[in-house]
Design a protein around this nucleic acid. Sequence first.
DNA 1: GCATTAACCACCG
DNA 2: CGGTGGTTAATGC
Length: 223
Amino acid sequence: MNPIEAILSRQPWFASLSDEERQNVSRSCMTRRFDADGIIVRDGDPVEHWFGVIDGLVKLCVFEESGQSTTLIGVPSGGWFGEGTVLNNKFWRYTAICMHETQVALMPKATFDRLHAENLAFNQFLLSHVNIRLSQLIDSLLGDRLLSPEARLAHCIAWLVQPQLYLNPEMTVSLSQNELGLLSGLSRQRANQAMRALTDAGLVHAQYGQVKVLNLDGLLNYK
DNA sequence: GCATTAACCACCG
DNA sequence: CGGTGGTTAATGC
């Protein structure tokens, strides 16, 4: 089994395809490897693929003309991104940057559109995926408006190991506190301070360049 | 008051 | 050595 088949076989919708369609889909997809800081797509690039993170970590960012930039979300191994753009737009509206060396699966838009038009299980997967992302958005609005920096960081870490979205039995994510700050909208120093609070609360275990989640519900309920 | 930037230093890989 | 973590001081809203 080639790498792309191995990835697709883990997708819940893939098994529902006919043998022929499974072959067609996996033949149309590709994998590509990026170094740390490698750019998968830029804001303004034409939409050609839907992307899956096989191994590594990707951040989705926007850059303002003023020179300001912000990180929207992190997508770890097992996650997919860009379905909204593939469905609705001709051009990317954010930039996807690898935070580590990252291997990415690329599904051509034509394949995506065909599955979207023809396969129920694929649509069920998409709807559930989009639904979880919507929860994530609402949670992030909540964090932004009502919650403490500690809670914002807690939620941000929790979403990175979200078992509904990603396969990560170790519940661990490889990120520096600087990158954690970028993802949660905090400075490194404030993220560091918040990390200590979460560690003291026994919710996470901080290692060098890596965080292990000990209590996912605790993180999500952190005020 | 609280978070941010800048800066420093010790430590890890 | 570069990247990361822990901390402090100055600045800004």
